[in-house]
Design a protein around this nucleic acid. Sequence first.
DNA 1: GTCTATAAATTGATAGAC
DNA 2: GTCTATCAATTTATAGAC
Lengths: 170, 170
Amino acid sequence: MTALALFAENGVHGTSLQQIADRLGVAKATVYHQFATKDALIEAVVQPAVESLGVLLAAAEPITDRGEQVEVLLNGLVDLVINGRELSAVTHGDPGVAALLGSNPILRGHGERVLGLLLGPDPSPSRRVAVSMFNAGLMLSGTDPMVAGLPDEDLRQELLAGARRLLAED
Amino acid sequence: MTALALFAENGVHGTSLQQIADRLGVAKATVYHQFATKDALIEAVVQPAVESLGVLLAAAEPITDRGEQVEVLLNGLVDLVINGRELSAVTHGDPGVAALLGSNPILRGHGERVLGLLLGPDPSPSRRVAVSMFNAGLMLSGTDPMVAGLPDEDLRQELLAGARRLLAED
DNA sequence: GTCTATAAATTGATAGAC
DNA sequence: GTCTATCAATTTATAGAC
């Protein structure tokens, strides 16, 4: 999707349908023919990642061994970021987007389930901060120019290594 | 500054001068009397942090012992986040803001100096990713609702602990 | 310094021809 | 399906009275 690139560049609020239409080389009304509203377009951009996240959660939640569960989750989350470097930054960047996505009950539920699994039962303040840092760090590193040149596989392994250091169970 | 709270809530692009004026209880023209443009207002909001960062850099850069230098820098950066939880999220959240701040040569320079010190000489890909994760994690954790309830001093220590785990020198 | 009023441009969104 | 034309609302920003 072309809209995603613009969202990543200028933020969702900073991207007008006119800009999207211009870059697509079509008229603004053409965009409105496919998406009823701007919010619908945003949701369409986000949807594939939401579904992937749902699959990952369904796979991780039944795992009873805590260490293995976290490991599966971390691997899956890193893969999601690698497969869509731009998207993750968009969803975590603009506070306005966070509010809009928070109104989507499915995505909201997924976010809470991910955090619930990472936090574990009865999380300490220490773990809360570690999970928070991991969450932000993972999502925004995907588009950080500082690591933009790294091949996918290298970035994958380094993100995993960082996550393990940050989230090492006490 | 009242504008900061709104920026943190809705993003910079998502906050109009009308909203700012309304919350301040004054007319829009009154805001324009103090700040020539919206960009000038944004820069004014950011400026105190820029100056603090400059002081921190001036203190850290002359330190010759590498371990001590990083330690001073981490402590200072965490303090900056604690002292302005909202601001750091604003500056790192909206991609549009990042672009605007990137056009400010002073802030741009400060950012590069911080990263340069954290990366150290001839940084490995591994270190680049770790620094990137730390950077994003530190800045966005300041406003994460998950840690919003923590007292400043607790958050301070936990952020430092996370930073040290993430950035432990090889 | 603060206000009302307004300008000029852009926004999200719609109507209707082809 | 894509276009031109247009709507009402909102945006940044300015002019000028008090």
